[in-house]
């Protein structure tokens, strides 16, 4: 992170040093007996922390207006506190007002900039939530997201199942979808191709879902689709639909080989306890025949 925002870090350090130089050349050094340690620690600490926050923002967000406002506001607050802190070491002659101006402009100005940054950040977040539709519902848990497909995992699914049962008892359905012979894709075309296929299927399923549905990567090549407030008939229709769209997909490896993909599905209503339901749907998938008619026999 320090590497990516090295320039910002250098600019902040240079500004802080420039203030030291300004105070040193125009002010009179205060003897140590007059130092107020409480103020030094408080103001210096505020400056350090604000600077650290600015670096965190710059290091973790894509650059753009919101990032600039957030980091700029924090930097101004940092410099304001730094000036406050320097006041403890140097006495500026009474006939000079520039130091008062610096103090009263930097900190409040920084706060204003930061506030506007937070306001735009909120707008930005709304448009990002649109992107997360069908990948998350009701609550966010960033640790639950799978690194390959960017879908939430089985833990997240279990919590969602429980939540849905509490919110709408007696309705809602769950579909499990498992790719046939997926292990052969990994073995014959490599794991990276396997991951590409998993991503493709995730996109395909997302496109086929309604806005209120939730898609999770259950484990391996098995996906889970939560259909809130739906009944078994609807689930059956949707499950068949997903199965057909997977079979229709013309997926190609990087080297241009067409991989015929088929999937098995199982579905159930949310009336059972989550763990029992998942077990039953897992078993139903295992009982279904698992073969690829169009895949060449083992060569």
């Amino acid at each position: 992170m320090l590497l990516t925002c090295r320039r910002a870090l250098m600019a902040m350090t240079l500004a802080a040093l420039a203030f030291v130089f300004l105070y040193g050349s125009l002010g009179v050094y205060r003897p140590m007996e007059q130092w107020s340690w409480m103020d030094i620690v408080g103001e210096g600490g505020t400056a350090l922390m604000s600077g650290f926050w600015a670096i965190l923002i710059l290091g973790s967000r894509p650059s753009g207006r919101v990032t600039l406002l957030l980091a700029g506001g924090l930097t101004a607050i940092m410099l304001g506190s730094w000036v406050d802190c320097l006041d403890e070491f140097f006495v500026i002659p009474k006939d000079q007002f520039w130091d008062n101006w610096l103090e009263s402009l930097l900190t409040p100005g920084g706060m204003l900039i930061l506030t506007s940054g937070l306001y735009f950040w909120r707008q930005e977040q709304w448009s990002l939530n649109e992107h997360m539709q069908k990948r998350e519902r009701l609550f966010r848990e960033h640790r639950a997201f799978d690194r390959v497909t960017q879908l939430a995992n089985a833990d997240y699914l279990r919590r969602q199942l429980q939540l849905e049962q509490e919110r709408h008892p007696g309705s809602g359905a769950l579909i499990l979808l498992d790719l046939d012979q997926f292990h052969r894709v990994n073995r014959e075309h490599g794991q990276q191709e396997g991951n590409r296929l998993l991503q493709a299927i995730a996109h395909l399923l997302l496109l086929n879902l309604r806005p209120e549905d939730l898609l999770c990567r259950y484990a391996g090549d098995r996906y889970a689709i939560l259909l809130p407030e739906s009944d078994l008939q609807e689930a059956a229709v949707w499950a068949r639909h997903m199965q057909q769209s997977v079979a229709q997909l013309a997926h190609h490896t990087r080297s241009g080989i067409r991989l015929p993909i088929t999937a098995r599905v199982s579905w159930g209503s949310l009336e059972e306890a989550p763990e029992a339901l998942l077990n039953r749907l897992d078993q139903a998938l295992e009982a279904a025949p698992d073969f690829l008619p169009t895949h060449a026999a083992l060569a």
Partner: peptide
């Protein structure tokens, strides 16, 4: 073998945090 074989598994451990991995990769 070209087919999924009907293995049954036992584990000398408590129920794991990710039982779904066992279900998908080994079977139920």
């Amino acid at each position: 073998s070209g087919q999924r074989l009907p293995w049954r598994y036992t584990f000398n451990r408590t129920r794991p945090a990710h039982p779904e991995q066992y279900a998908v990769h080994l079977g139920s």
